[in-house]
């Protein structure tokens, strides 16, 4: 697996993925599963090191919205490319709950989905080991303008059309 950060290219993994049974490392940055998060929240919130959470795609972001300040990374799951629930999770985390940490796409991530994911606010992507990352990165710029507002905050085509009249940004 490789890690692609939207504006940086390939990056090194700096997080430790903890299974539910492993003892927690003392100070490293860790990503834990949702079960462990529910069961050991108090311990997790007290320890040193940054905390990341693997969010199953059937959990509503509302359920973690009051704890987002403690989270530096949320791992979103795409169990299959055509299971698009995490797109809504990403939009909600960014737009409604103001999550500022890393949103990482994990699972069946394909080149031709990267732009959709980025628009929904996902900024880091787990790529298959041999995927040509540079080639894949081109997918971010397939389109110059888009019709809908989304978590990426770009002005919509409709807004751009009326820039002069409205003075909007």
């Amino acid at each position: 697996m490789q890690l692609l950060k939207k504006d940086q290219g390939l990056i090194e993994e700096t997080w430790v993925h903890c299974t539910d049974l492993e003892p927690l490392p003392v100070s490293e940055n860790i990503i834990v599963g949702y079960g462990r998060w529910l069961n050991e929240q108090e311990t997790l919130l007290k320890r040193n090191g940054l905390l990341g959470l693997e969010l199953p795609n059937d959990v509503s972001p509302a359920d973690i919205s009051d704890k987002l300040d403690h989270l530096s990374l949320i791992l979103l799951d795409f169990p299959a490319f055509n299971d698009g629930r995490a797109y809504s999770q990403a939009q909600l985390l960014r737009n409604r709950y103001g999550f500022k940490g890393e949103l990482r796409a994990s699972g069946h991530v394909l080149r031709d989905q990267l732009a959709f994911m980025a628009r929904c606010g996902i900024d880091c992507f787990e790529l298959p080991l041999h995927a040509p990352a540079q080639e894949w990165s081109k997918a971010f710029s397939d389109f110059s303008n888009m019709y809908q507002g989304a978590a990426d905050g770009f002005a919509t085509i409709a807004q751009k059309r009326h820039l002069d009249q409205t003075g909007a940004e």
Partner: peptide
């Protein structure tokens, strides 16, 4: 039509 064209959130329903 315009709103739904390549809507990033609703392309894998």
């Amino acid at each position: 039509r315009q709103w739904s064209s390549l809507h990033p959130e609703f392309t894998f329903l």
